[in-house]
């Protein structure tokens, strides 16, 4: 049973077993505007919770993507190299960034569930 958690930096992580798939939220892609390039981490890279490990470039600016939890990158979304617009079209589907083998599932407890994230976005006005 997959569960999805959210960060205050507008990343989502969908966890199945001990692997989490990471991307950015609908709110984040709307704020960024048209995505033209995504720099994803290579498989095998170890990242700590909160570490900047991917970059998403819109026409206007580059934004860091932070690891919601720590772990080892097991796969990145190679298709984004040719179709970065997937991040805008399907931010929680085809527009995923990378997959992490979690080092400590306990780190998920500090993240928001969907209801808490929705309330958080509302509070941003």
């Amino acid at each position: 049973m997959a569960e999805t958690k959210y960060t205050e930096e507008h990343e989502w992580i969908r966890v199945e077993g001990d692997v989490g798939t990471i991307g950015i939220t609908q709110y984040a892609q709307e704020q960024l505007g048209d995505v033209v390039f995504v720099d994803v981490p290579a498989a095998g890279r170890k990242v700590a919770k909160g570490e900047a490990c991917a970059v998403v470039e819109s026409v206007k600016a580059a934004s860091d993507i932070y690891a919601p939890v720590g772990g080892e990158v097991v796969e990145s979304n190679a298709a984004l190299a040719d179709t970065p617009g997937d991040v805008n079209a399907e931010p929680t589907g085809k527009g995923w960034f990378f997959k992490l083998k979690l080092s400590d599932k306990g780190e998920l407890d500090g993240l928001m569930d969907e209801a808490a994230y929705e309330a958080f976005v509302k509070s941003l006005g």
Partner: peptide
């Protein structure tokens, strides 16, 4: 800075 269609379409 942009309208709803976005910068790529506007460009």
């Amino acid at each position: 800075v942009q309208y709803p269609t976005g910068i790529l379409v506007e460009h």
